[in-house]
Design a protein around this nucleic acid. Structure first.
Length: 423
RNA sequence: GCCGUGUUCGUCUAGUGGUCCAGGACAUCGGGUUCUCAUCCCGAAAAUCAGGGGUUCGACUCCCCUACACGGUACCA
């Protein structure tokens, strides 16, 4: 099976369904996927459900949904290790028969020769890593519950599935000598995969990324209004850089230019500010129809926002005006909501509101157009020496927001008049 | 403790012996455009290249040591 097309690159993403993958784990999937696409190879999804006790309900569904949403589609069908117990058992037996493994305390163990040295050239950083056999602990390959451990199942599957490159997190570096030994013991030494270990993402405090500081899943980010394009762009730039000064990359672009050689060896620190920035970049990149589609998906259960989007006559101006003012899709509602909380007017502002109301009545009468409005506000600004910042506030009840011209089109003059009357 | 890996502006990074008294981006600060806020444009500040030894005519780039960080040290993955 592994020899049918020896030159085809095959990689796999092998998560265990013990929780919803956070952004770091998802980045591992992304890198595998990109490497496969960039080299014309295959990207396989394998669920490593060998630890029955720690399986979390819904975790596998979440993994699938993440890949689906991101557009990182696995090739072929999903493999479950729990379906392959017989295969692992056969290999365990082979190892026992060959005196490479032994039973002890109800489990099957392997001990690597102490005098040996196990080394490889890592695909990340292209550097040699090696361990002395004496530093590799004796380990279990088959647990007493009949399930294999990662070490055994991983090696057997990678070999049988013809995996050519094992791209995984750096927490596996010290296990790699065990894996190399297993390949040898099973007689597969001559077509071992290449190993590439990705540096893990650190939180802002330089400790391992955890829930506390942003190790959320991409599903969490999605519900906060982040775009998949931005998440992909952000993840790929954590530890990978093609060398130029370009910062914005689409998935399809990455599928062409990605390379393992350009992955850094140091641990990057997660920076939410940069994620927010790149998300804004991608929002501004959206065409009007696509922008509306994303908003409708995001606000599918919000009637107020849906109603606003249903108004065909104002939708165009609204979307155009909102787009440059958003970092996430969640920023849209505060921009358009009538119910948005307004702060208290100061005494001075109340006075100005009254004056402005008089001014506009005299200047505009019932004929409010954008041009007439702005011109008369300019006049008010000059005559009364009231800064536009204040004018904007007394007209809208907010310190910032959409431009007045757009607001006139969307909400009409009564909106302004009511704000000038209220205090 | 032991084993492994890493260390360039606050952060992401460019840089593979001379073109680097170190370039870009985010964030920060200042300015311009402007009806607010953004967008956009311009500019500033920000790294004695972790520290110390070598090697070399010459080191951010090669070697060694130290410090620190991260990973591993489970019948978890």
């Amino acid at each position: 099976m592994n020899n049918d097309k020896p030159h085809t690159i095959r990689v796999r993403f092998a998560p265990s369904p013990t929780g919803i993958p956070h952004i770091g784990n998802t980045r591992t999937a992304l890198f595998n996927y990109l490497f496969a696409r960039a080299s014309g190879g295959k990207f396989i999804l394998r669920i490593e459900d060998t630890d029955q006790k720690r399986i979390v309900k819904g975790a596998e569904e979440a993994i699938l949904e993440i890949l689906e949403w991101l557009g990182i589609k696995p090739d072929g069908s999903v493999v479950h290790q729990s379906d392959r117990l017989k295969i692992y058992n056969e290999h365990v037996k082979e190892l026992i028969d060959g005196k490479k493994a032994y039973e002890k305390e109800g489990a099957v163990w392997v001990k690597v020769p102490h005098e040996r040295r196990f080394g490889w050239t890592d695909g990340v950083g292209n550097k040699k890593i090696s361990f002395l056999g004496k530093d590799v602990d004796e380990f279990v390959i088959l647990k007493s519950d009949g399930f294999p451990t990662y070490h055994l199942a991983n090696v057997v599957d990678d070999h049988l599935m013809g995996i050519t490159h094992v791209i995984r997190g750096e927490e596996w570096i010290s296990s790699t000598p065990k894996h190399i030994y297993l390949y040898e013991a099973l007689g597969w030494k001559d077509n071992m995969p290449e190993f590439a270990h990705l540096p893990v993402i650190l939180g802002p405090d330089h400790t391992k990324l955890s829930k506390r500081h942003g190790a959320k899943s991409v599903l969490d980010y999605r519900s906060e209004g982040f775009l998949k394009e931005a998440l992909i762009n952000f993840m790929v730039l954590l530890g990978w850089n093609p060398g130029g000064e370009k910062e914005q990359f689409s998935l399809s672009e990455l599928e062409k230019i990605f390379s393992l050689k350009q992955i850094n060896t140091a641990n990057p620190v997660f920076d939410i500010k940069k994620l927010a920035w790149i998300n804004g970049v991608w929002i501004r990149e959206l065409g009007e129809n696509d922008f509306e589609k994303r908003l409708r998906e995001f606000y599918s259960r919000d009637n107020e926002v849906s109603d606003v989007l249903d108004n065909k006559t104002t939708k165009g101006v609204l979307l155009a005006a909102a787009k440059s003012r958003m970092k996430t899709l969640a920023d849209f509602k505060p921009l358009v909501s009538e119910k948005e909380s307004k702060r208290e007017y100061t005494i001075k502002e109340i006075k100005i509101a009254g004056q402005l109301l008089e001014h506009l009545k005299n200047e505009l009468g019932d004929n409010w157009t954008e041009e007439r409005l702005i011109n008369s506000l300019r006049k008010f600004n000059k005559e009364k020496d009231v800064p536009f910042k204040t004018i904007y506030f007394v007209l809208t009840g907010k310190d910032q927001g959409l431009p007045l011209g757009e607001l006139l089109k969307i909400r009409h003059k009564d909106f302004f008049i009511n704000n000038l009357k209220s205090e």
